[in-house]
Design a protein around this nucleic acid. Structure first.
Length: 466
RNA sequence: GCGCUCAUCGUCUAGCCUGGUCUAGGACACCGCCCUUUCACGGCGGCGACAGGGGUUCGAAUCCCCUUGGGCGUACCA
């Protein structure tokens, strides 16, 4: 165990999206590589927007991706007493103050400042107020940010970053209703949980100089920071639903494998020479913040798809078979009385880009009734094909060795008998067996389908020839 | 507007720190050819980038400055 302590801290206001998954991945990888500790924390201080469904969805996605945590999940909503005591501490030290300005006043001031070309920051009206306007006046608590000087931190990805303190605002740390806000609780928790390195999205760099003074005011050590670049859509704007699916689990539903998602995500912004394919073990060994790029990256679904096809192609047929069962069930196909799933998988691995595609391509193995494509039937199952099909049936009935090679021999016989090339025979047999013109190789289909079902389907087709 | 930040093929990136080995390498996508019983897989080849302008230097993708463009922030959201 090293002393590295990192965390993933999503707010449960929706599903786990691509960007969140990547920061979770980077944290997870770092923790495993350094034999440190990976903490999961749920940031649900915004009680109105946080939901249990979101928590469940995020947990489920983390599990699917294989990001196991060592501590947590901790819920900020269960730690309000801690935060309140810290707010109290700052209030007593004079490092925070009550602010009685109403939101309307604040908005008006902001707009006025913006209009006159100034900064839309809090003007400090209540910073030096000596008494409350009235005993029961509602208030928020603001943190006294330093007025001058500058705040600098060395980002592990971006290098040194400096802000002039006059740019900082007296941020609200406790709302009118008494609940604490993000920028405050994140400091308290990151410190109380002993985090040594904060790896989070780029969108937080501006928060960092506002958080550092809070660490200091509370007497906490300031951790290291690493801000990972954002993920953009094809139009270079921030990735959002209008760019397509952004939910990690939506990709599972579309037939993606978790290892493909992980591999794609890690290569978006990180590289290891020219290597494209990484197993999780390899990532734990090779990942480093040193080769994480500074620039935002565009999410490229095509490359994800390519990786998915790669992992399907090289995946274990047993495991893929189990997964296939679920995808088949989703399209109403029961596998109970069909061929063994691993053998089905083997015929489709090389031609499937997603598990959904594989399920669609595998359905014909399991359906009792072949679903015929009209165009295919019109073209390849015409009445003149009857002698050919009868020859195929005869030859297959005599086939003693029902394997790919044995079936191949049977077809050689047909070719001799009819004088036709396989190109003239195959398509009709294919349509008879699967109903359409695309499928795995017909010898494989015959082998996996089995002698009985294959001959049944061929004979059945004799009755529908036109 | 202000602040922070980023900038190599359409996209992900290698190279940049420690200038010359870069007529800039790999991958996805795209195009072509080959393989082939369909669809795919695969193999081979092609197209394609150092944002622009100054400077430093014998020499710059690599160092410095400016411009332009993008992203993020500017909430009693996180």
């Amino acid at each position: 165990m090293s002393d590295l302590r990192v965390r993933f801290a999503p707010s449960p206001t929706g599903y786990l999206h691509i960007g969140g998954a990547r920061t979770a991945l980077f944290n997870y990888l770092l923790a495993r590589k350094e034999k440190g500790t990976f903490i999961l924390r749920i940031e649900d201080t915004d009680v109105a927007r946080s939901t249990q469904e979101s928590v469940d969805a995020i947990l489920q996605a983390m599990q699917w991706l294989g990001f196991s945590h060592d501590e947590g999940p901790f819920y900020q909503s269960e730690r309000f007493d801690l935060y309140r005591s810290k707010v109290q501490q700052l209030l007593e030290n004079g490092q925070a103050y009550r602010c009685y300005c109403t939101q309307e006043e604040l908005n008006a001031k902001r707009e006025a400042a913006l209009k006159s070309g100034g900064k839309p920051k809090y003007d400090g009206t209540c910073r030096n107020r000596t008494a409350a306007p009235s005993a029961d006046a509602p208030f928020v608590v603001r943190f006294k940010s330093p007025l001058d000087g500058e705040t600098t931190f060395v980002d592990r990805i971006k290098g040194p970053i400096t802000f002039r303190n006059e740019e900082l605002d007296d941020i609200i740390i406790q709302r009118t209703d008494g609940t604490p806000t993000y920028n405050f609780v994140v400091v308290v928790d990151d410190a109380e949980m002993g985090l040594t390195l904060i790896v989070r999205g780029d969108d937080h760099v501006n928060n960092t100089p506002r958080q550092i003074p809070i660490y200091r005011a509370l007497g906490y050590p300031v951790p290291e920071f690493a801000h990972v670049p954002m993920i953009l859509g094809a139009d270079k704007s921030r990735l959002s639903k209008r760019h397509g699916a952004t939910s990690v689990m939506a990709y599972r539903d579309m037939g993606y494998l978790p290892e493909a998602m992980v591999n794609y995500l890690v290569r978006l912004g990180w590289s290891f020479g020219d290597q494209e394919i990484f197993s999780m073990d390899e990532l734990v060994e090779k990942f480093s913040l040193d080769n994480v790029g500074k620039a935002a990256g565009v999410f490229n679904p095509e490359k994800l798809l390519w990786l998915n096809a790669h992992y399907i192609k090289t995946g274990d047929p047993e495991r893929l078979g189990e997964l296939l069962k679920e995808y088949l069930a989703n399209i109403g196909v029961d596998v109970a009385n069909g061929p063994a799933l691993p053998s089905v998988v083997k015929t489709l691995q090389e031609r499937s880009h997603t598990m959904v595609e594989m399920a669609e391509g595998a359905a014909f193995y399991f359906r009792n009734e072949v679903v015929f494509d009209d165009d295919a039937v019109a073209k390849f199952l015409t009445i003149d094909k009857r002698p050919l099909l009868e020859s195929v049936i005869r030859s297959l009935e005599e086939c003693a060795d029902w394997t790919h090679d044995g079936i191949s021999l049977a077809f050689k016989q047909v070719m001799e008998d009819t004088g036709l090339k396989l190109g003239k025979i195959g398509p009709s047999v294919r349509v008879a067996l699967v109903g359409g013109t695309t499928s795995p190789g017909i010898f494989e289909v015959l082998e996996v389908l089995g002698r009985k079902v294959s001959l049944q389907r061929l004979e059945n087709v004799l009755t529908i020839l036109k």
